[in-house]
Design a protein around this nucleic acid. Structure first.
Length: 823
DNA sequence: TGATCCCGCCAACGT
DNA sequence: ACGTTGGCGGGATCA
């Protein structure tokens, strides 16, 4: 009765019109479609129109699940009159319209993300298959993946239970844990390394112990990961050993969860999932099959919005990959080992957020239109900070919930919140625009705060590549280059306390007082230092990074490779530590003085000429930050050079260290990790320091560099050596640093890729320049532009603000002080 | 072309 | 034996 092949779309109608086109049909089917979209003559007309346009057609496809016979007939006539033969042809369901992804969307649309026990949460495969008009086989594909996430569970033959996303947090946590235990991170690296070595082999060189399996981590053949209480029921039903797709799906997800950035390329995933990667025999066909399956899985995961497709660019060309866009999965709170982390975070956070109220306020300024649902992470944050001293309070701003929040199986607050936002999201589903906006809102930096929370929270993906960039900009550790499509990366400087004021003094002639002045620290101008020597280090580091980076590399159209922070040579732990840079965005907004933190995108270009900023800035205790800072996925993703090398951030940032007497330390700092230093508010106050750094654009807003009160007493030269040999001593240094055994007291002498002068300095005080077109851009966007490249723009030059730039050869030694203070 | 991935054969399983 | 699952890979489509 119900045509099997017929896709329930407009063109299906067209298909029928085709004289004996296909034997398979019989329109029929009034069937109850989606409640929200009544089939009216009007919509019918719309359909006809869209029929001629594949794009439109597919866009609206989802709503047109139900067609009533008479109208179908009507449609036929109309079409017959208006369409040509070829159009008929075109109108046949295209491959895309039969895609698993689309099907999955339809499938998901049938059930609420967060079903209540009241709902009918049973799934009958037959039914679904029929209603969606697809072979059951396809439904299996979907269900299997969903099952791997415990979004559904099999009850019996032909019968599944729908759980929606209730279990997702737990599942992801579990998967992440398993993934870690499985050392997937290492496996990924191994594979990547091999890939590189392979390339070198082709070049007729270098041959290494390619077959160096990781210890005995190869117990890999773990089986399906279950959740307590979510075990397969009906033992008889789940005996199937294979569960291949399910397991594969779980493993695939694990790869994302343990990766930094959370991007996994298909081939790497395939190799890992095949397991037997050791044998280079890499059965071609097997590999191919694996890829096929991964596509299947990826389609479903994409529909769930857990991942999205991206491309990685490397020597060989584009490479398909997927980026995790699902909720950030953070370690379980109970996890002792991670307890530290959260504590540290909360400490750091509390530094800025005195109370939960304040936090809440800061995160969600009561601005009329912004109806944020209180984010679960916020709740969690508060909880952490205040040590669970209260229950969820009714969130005033919470949107109306659709499904009764009678979720017993979830911790009250997070689920509620998550539910709220998820529902909101769900409601917007299908409306790309709205959805985008929604995401935009959600991805507001303020929410980033949740990144430090030990909980799984929805992390809406940025609407476009622009967003990630901005985000990155906000959290980029020192030395990170702007992802920039624009050389001027508007960065808002956050400020701990909205009410605080600072003053910026410019010498010799002009002072730019933002608010109040409260002398505290003086940054001494210094004579310039030898730059060339450092350049070599720079390039050296870069090269190294370049060759060692796996496909973690973010694709770039730019010939200049983009480098990605990654877990290579992770001398230290906390590699995967979640982002924990509290980004106080709205605080930001409250700051009248919004600065533009311009970063030189050409900073990677070793040929750049650097100018001493003239500021000698004492730094300490920031080392671990070089790790922590990168924990930020987004950041790591767009800001390559990072923690790969101890020195890279510095060099990349064009922050040069005076080879002679001044030592350097990574300035990358993250207050969250600076817990060890209890006196971060002293001389110079961290705020001052941070402000300074941020202002100069040397560290991103949001990144905090803890100050060390002893700075001034420590001979800076003690570390000088390390500077020069940074690349070689990297590991050593890192170790030292990571252990935080030494009070790292350093001075940074900043070299900027442009002479700092009044104009450009002042220009940095201007309000952020709105990004142009928020067009969604592929992750493959250039992050680093080569000078002269298509996207090249003058680095931080004063040009952008209309001021005459200073010729890039001049060595300009500014003679001014920058003072900042806070009340 | 290479990237995607639909389609459906057919084997393993369950009943 | 027959229905359910779902591995698998040919080959069509898409970009």
């Amino acid at each position: 009765k119900t045509p099997l092949k017929q896709a329930a779309t407009s063109h299906s109608v067209l298909t029928e019109i085709q004289p004996d086109c296909q034997p398979l049909t019989t329109p029929t089917k009034p069937k109850e479609g989606l409640p929200a979209d009544p089939w009216t003559p009007t919509s019918n007309l719309k359909m006809l129109i869209s029929a001629a346009s594949p794009e439109i057609r597919s866009r609206e496809q989802r709503r047109e699940l139900s067609i009533n016979t008479s109208e179908v007939l009507h449609a036929k006539h109309c079409l017959q009159e208006h369409l040509l033969g070829e159009e008929y042809e075109k109108s046949q369901p295209s491959r895309k319209e039969k895609s698993l992804g689309l099907l999955c969307h339809k499938f998901l649309a049938r059930y609420p993300d967060y079903p209540s026990s009241a709902d009918n949460n049973y799934i009958s495969l037959d039914e679904v298959a029929e209603e969606l008009k697809v072979e059951r086989r396809r439904i299996y594909d979907i269900v299997n993946v969903l099952e791997s996430l415990h979004m559904v569970s099999r009850l019996a033959k032909n019968r599944y239970a729908w759980h929606g996303r209730h279990n997702l947090p737990k599942t992801l946590q579990a998967l992440k844990k398993v993934g870690e235990n499985n050392k997937y991170t290492q496996q990924i690296q191994l594979i990547k390394r091999r890939e590189y070595e392979h390339e070198f082999d082709l070049d007729g060189e270098r041959k290494e112990e390619t077959a160096k399996p990781f210890g005995s981590n190869r117990d890999s053949e773990m089986s399906f990961v279950e959740l307590p209480g979510m075990e397969f029921r009906a033992a008889s039903v789940n005996s199937r050993k294979d569960k291949s797709l399910r397991v594969m799906s779980q493993k695939f997800v694990m790869l994302f969860l343990v990766s930094t950035p959370q991007i996994v390329s298909l081939d790497v995933a395939a190799k890992i999932l095949i397991g037997e990667e050791q044998l280079e025999d890499l059965d071609k066909s097997k590999f191919k099959t694996k890829i096929r399956r991964l596509y299947d899985i990826a389609n479903v995961l994409s529909s769930l919005q857990l991942i999205k497709k991206v491309h990685l660019t490397e020597e060989r060309g584009r490479k398909p990959a997927f980026k995790w866009t699902g909720p950030e999965v953070l370690p379980n709170t109970q996890d002792t080992k991670l307890e530290t982390t959260s504590t540290t975070c909360s400490q750091a956070i509390s530094e800025y957020i005195p109370s939960k109220e304040q936090c809440s306020k800061n995160l969600f300024p009561s601005r009329g239109k912004q109806n944020f649902t209180r984010h679960p992470s916020l709740i969690k944050l508060v909880k952490t900070i205040e040590d669970d001293r209260r229950k969820v309070q009714s969130a005033p701003t919470s949107p109306v919930k659709r499904s009764a929040s009678t979720d017993q199986n979830l911790p009250a607050f997070p689920s509620k919140m998550a539910q709220g936002s998820a529902i909101a999201k769900h409601q917007l589903e299908g409306q790309s625009k709205n959805e985008k906006e929604n995401k935009m809102k959600l991805s507001s930096p303020a929410l980033e705060c949740h990144l430090s929370l030990p909980e799984v929270v929805p992390r809406p993906e940025p609407p476009s590549s622009t967003a990630p960039c901005q985000q990155a900009a906000l959290t980029q550790p020192l030395g990170v280059c702007p992802p920039g499509h624009t050389s001027v990366s508007p960065v808002i400087l956050p400020h701990p306390h909205p009410g605080v004021s600072y003053a910026i003094y410019l010498q010799p002639s002009q002072a730019h007082t933002v608010t109040r002045y409260s002398p505290s620290v003086m940054l001494q101008p210094l004579p310039c230092a030898n730059v060339t020597g450092i350049k070599s280090v720079n390039s050296q580091v870069l090269n190294q990074i370049t060759t060692e980076e796996g496909d973690n590399q973010i694709a770039t159209d730019d010939p200049t490779k983009s480098l990605t922070a990654k877990e290579e040579r992770p001398p230290t732990k906390s590699e995967t530590s979640p982002q924990r840079c509290p980004k106080r965005s709205q605080a930001v907004q409250e700051i009248n003085s919004i600065k533009r933190c311009r970063r030189d995108e050409e900073s990677l270009d070793t040929k750049l000429t650097f100018f001493p900023s003239g500021y000698l800035i004492p730094l300490t205790q920031c080392s671990h930050g070089s790790k922590a800072g990168f924990a930020d996925k987004e950041k790591a993703e767009v800001c390559p050079v990072q923690h790969t090398a101890y020195s890279s951030p510095i060099t990349a940032l064009n922050i040069m260290l005076s080879p002679t007497s001044i030592a350097a330390a990574p300035v990358l700092g993250n207050s969250c990790l600076s817990s060890s230093n209890a006196s971060s508010a002293q001389i110079p106050s961290s705020s001052v320091l941070n402000f300074t750094l941020q202002h100069i654009g040397l560290i991103p807003a949001g990144v905090q560099v803890p100050a060390n009160p002893f700075v001034q007493h420590v001979p800076a030269s003690s570390q000088a050596e390390n500077v020069t040999h940074s690349s070689e001593n990297r590991s050593l240094q890192e170790e030292k640093v990571s252990k935080n055994t030494l009070p790292l007291n350093h001075f940074l002498f900043f070299f900027l890729p442009f002479p700092l002068n009044e104009s450009n300095f002042l220009s940095s005080l201007q309000p952020p320049v709105p990004k142009e077109a928020q067009e969604p851009q592929p992750v493959t966007e250039n992050f680093f532009r080569t000078p002269g490249g298509p996207n090249t723009e003058p680095p931080l030059s004063a040009k952008s603000d209309g001021t005459a730039g200073i010729s890039p050869g001049t060595l300009y030694i500014p003679q001014r002080k920058l003072e900042v203070s806070e009340d």
